[in-house]
Design a protein around this nucleic acid. Structure first.
Lengths: 133, 133
DNA sequence: TTATCTGCAAATAATTTGCAGTCTT
DNA sequence: AAGACTGCAAATTATTTGCAGATAA
């Protein structure tokens, strides 16, 4: 655990953040002024590989990062993305039903297509209240 | 409707295809030998905007294109992606349950967060039979 | 020390854009 | 002829990589 790595973790530590690598870089730069962008990318990839951070894309071709769900359903959520302004809402509603569907789907797809399912993506896109008019 | 555009449509016409822009370009080049890659991108964007084609990403940072669902549930499907070799399986299983969940979710999210839902993504990732071992 | 980590700059790779020529109507 | 469409080449942009020096254990 080195200073740059600590700075990256720190940048992501606020809950509900969905930062791009550039944004992580800016925040991390405050704590570690001469950190390099490449190091940020390398660290984010490392953390993602360890399962501590999850990486996703909302359609603007910039990867976004957030702390991974703390083991299981507890913090499980999905994203609702505004196509207008890019706003991202974390929602946990319907998680029960979703988990049920996911369980069924993973089992069924596994059996039918022989895949060993590792992960999934569920995202909704639409217009937020401000962008609707 | 110009020759290059026709060539792009033609390239996508085979069912079950999930082509990258580069692949569409190669296929389209057969029918229209001096088509340019930029035109392919422009045409794909046009068709996507018209709702005739849908664009998605399986995680390799290359956009993929396929004919859009013909109105509603009829051809509705989702993707099962192999993280090993990139293979993409279209599946329609659990579509009933998924539609039910989607309907509920769209209504609920709309009410709770004020979003007007336009679309969604559901994808599963895992290892295909060949990549499992 | 000894391998790992870092910053910088240069390299990639997908996609976009400027522009001048070409087609369509 | 006026506007839309095209190909080419150059520009963009997020991300990756090579490398020599710095750092952690």
């Amino acid at each position: 655990m080195t200073p740059p790595r600590h700075a990256v973790l720190d940048a992501l530590s606020e809950r509900g953040e969905h930062l791009t690598a550039e944004e992580v870089f800016k925040k991390a730069s405050r704590r570690c002024p001469n950190i390099g962008l490449a190091t940020v990318y390398r660290t984010l990839e490392l953390l993602t590989g360890l399962g501590l951070v999850s990486k996703f894309d909302t359609g603007d071709d910039k990867a976004r990062y957030e702390f991974a769900d703390p083991a299981g359903e507890k913090g499980h959520h999905h994203h609702l993305v505004c196509s207008g302004c890019g706003k991202i809402v974390d929602y946990k509603d319907f998680i029960g039903e979703e988990m049920e569907l996911l369980r069924k789907a993973e089992q069924g797809l596994s059996k039918k297509y022989g895949f060993k399912i590792k992960s999934h993506i569920i995202q909704f896109f639409g217009l937020c209240p401000a962008c609707r008019r």
